[in-house]
Design a protein around this nucleic acid. Structure first.
Lengths: 110, 110
DNA sequence: ATCATTTATCGTAATATTGCAATGAAATAA
DNA sequence: TTATTTCATTGCAATATTACGATAAATGAT
């Protein structure tokens, strides 16, 4: 026990949950917001911006990368991360559809 | 260690992360979808619908209730859960704003 | 009152997440 | 070459999550 029973659920349910989990930490929200604001940034900037240790930031970056939400390109000794536009759009649509599946069905005009 | 450093982040970052965490499990997505489809339901229905034990479903329902996303009303020995409309709308707006903060800033037309 | 039904809670085990110091790896600068 | 800088990875400790059996609490039925 202690492990999510993925096989019990649909692919969509698992996908929504997994992407929600990717953004289910304030540090990762902060990272994404910083990436959006500065259009790109590096690990070092984030360590100063957020108060967490370098190893911890790196770990959060990896999770966001594994979820496909960001991508990094190496520039010398630095790494330039930015939002993965296509994945971001896909996430937006997926969540939008999920949230609207409620309001749509209860909207008296439909 | 092992505990999220909430104090390092803004209230908004913590709120988005916390709500994302509330839906960051396929069982809770399945529960919400079932509530939306049937417009209301009870614990027992969900145990049959989803393959998890009654205690586990009850636990997930509590998490959704604590996040404010659903509310339950007692009907005899049963409990009738439904989506909390206002909170759902708030969640939708919060996520919509977050997702659009990227596309807006990168839209060449703005 | 007794029993059945339904949901919540408790206790516990297995696993996952969070955070960081220490160390590695890779490029640049001296 | 020998530092220095920057990021990734490893290993570990603390805490959180997931799941379920057992049990409690509350209502309704007999």
């Amino acid at each position: 026990m202690g492990v999510t029973q993925t096989h019990l659920f649909t692919e969509e349910q698992n996908e929504i949950a997994q992407l929600a989990k990717a953004i289910a930490h304030p540090a990762r929200i902060a990272i994404l917001q910083h990436l959006i604001k500065t259009k790109s940034c590096i690990n070092g900037d984030l360590v100063l911006e957020i108060g967490l240790a370098q190893a911890t930031i790196s770990q959060h970056l990896r999770e966001l990368k594994e979820a496909g939400l960001i991508q990094g390109s190496i520039e010398g000794t630095r790494v330039n991360y930015c939002i993965h536009t296509e994945k971001w759009s896909a996430l937006k649509s997926l969540f939008q559809d999920f949230f609207e599946s409620y309001s749509d069905c209860c909207d008296p005009n439909c």
